[in-house]
C-alpha cells in the first residue's frame, strides 16, 4: 500500500471516529442553556438543569429507582449467571452447548416482543411498576452478558488447579473462594459491569411495565423527550457520558499498565 492510500484511509478512519463520538457531545453545551429549549448552539449559561435533576422529584426519583434496580440486578444476574457458566463448562460439550444456547436467547429476541409478553404476564400478576417486576425482567436480560463474560474467562482457566487444591486437602468451598474465584475474578467483574449497564440503560421493557409511582431513568428521559424541550435530559445525558468515558478510560489505562508490569 502506498503512502497516499494510507493517508486517505487514515483520514477516513478519523472521520468515522469523529462520527462515533462527536454527535453525542452536542448535549454538553445544551445542558448549560439558559432558556428552556433544545436549540443548538444554546444562548447564555446556567446550572439550573443540573439543579433540576436533584430538586425535581420526577428526575431524582427515577435516578434513585434506576440505581436501586441496577444494583440488585447486577448482584442477582452475576451470582446465578456465574453459577450457570461454571455448570456449562463442567457439562459435556453437547448438552453444555444446548444450555448455553438457551441462556443466550434474551439477546436475540426483539425487545418489543419481550416487552409485550412481560407486560401481559405482569398485568395478570400485579407486577407492573414493582421492584420485583423490574428485577425479574432486567436480570433475565443481563444473564447472557454474565455468561459470556465469565464463560470466556473459564475457557482459559486451568481446571487442574482446582484438583491440585483438592488433593492438598481443601474442601470444595475453600477451593472455590481461594482458587477459582480469584482466577475468574476479572470475568465476574466485567459480567457485573455489563449486568449493571444492561439494567441501567434498559428502556423498552421499562416503557411497558412502568407506573407513575415507579419509573426508571431511561423512561423518564424518553417521556421528557416526547413531551417537551427540557434541557434537563441534556444535563443527565452529559453526566452519564462523562461517567462512562471516565470508567472506560480508567479500565483501559489499568489494563495497559498491568500488561506492562
Amino acid at each position: 500500500m502506498n503512502r497516499l492510500q494510507r493517508t486517505l484511509i487514515s483520514l477516513f478512519c478519523a472521520c468515522v471516529a469523529l462520527w462515533l463520538v462527536a454527535p453525542t457531545l452536542v448535549i454538553v453545551p445544551i445542558s448549560f442553556a439558559e432558556k428552556k429549549s433544545l436549540a443548538f448552539p444554546p444562548d447564555g449559561f446556567s446550572l439550573q438543569w443540573y439543579a433540576n435533576l436533584i430538586q425535581s422529584p420526577d428526575w431524582s426519583g427515577s435516578i434513585l429507582n434506576s440505581l436501586k434496580i441496577a444494583v440488585i440486578v447486577s448482584v442477582v444476574a452475576t451470582v446465578i449467571g456465574t453459577l450457570a457458566a461454571m455448570g456449562i463448562t463442567r457439562m459435556k460439550a453437547g448438552s453444555g452447548g444446548v444450555v448455553r444456547a438457551i441462556l443466550i436467547t434474551p439477546m436475540i429476541v426483539p425487545g418489543v416482543v419481550l416487552a409485550i409478553g412481560i407486560y401481559a404476564v405482569y398485568l395478570d400478576h400485579q407486577l407492573v411498576g414493582t421492584l420485583t417486576g423490574y428485577v425479574l425482567a432486567h436480570s433475565m436480560l443481563a444473564i447472557p452478558f454474565v455468561i459470556i463474560a465469565v464463560g470466556a474467562n473459564l475457557a482459559v482457566f486451568d481446571a487442574r488447579l482446582e484438583t491440585a487444591a483438592a488433593s492438598l486437602g481443601a474442601s470444595r468451598l475453600v477451593t472455590f473462594f481461594t482458587v477459582t474465584l480469584p482466577l475468574i475474578g476479572p470475568g465476574i467483574l466485567s459480567g457485573l459491569l455489563f449486568a449493571f449497564v444492561t439494567s441501567f440503560d434498559e428502556v423498552i421493557v421499562a416503557l411497558f411495565i412502568n407506573s407513575p409511582r415507579m419509573k426508571t431513568l431511561p423512561v423518564q428521559i424518553y417521556s421528557s423527550m416526547t413531551r417537551d424541550s427540557d434541557p434537563t435530559v441534556a444535563a443527565v445525558g452529559s453526566l452519564m457520558f462523562a461517567l462512562t468515558t471516565l470508567t472506560i478510560a480508567a479500565a483501559l489505562w489499568i489494563g495497559t499498565r498491568r500488561r506492562r508490569s
Partner: peptide, 19 residues
Amino acid sequence: PVWLTVPSLLLLLVALGYP
C-alpha cells in the same frame, strides 16, 4: 453440573418463556 444452571433456567422460564 446441570444443577448449577437451574437458577438461570428457571428465571428464563418465568421471565422469557412464559411471556
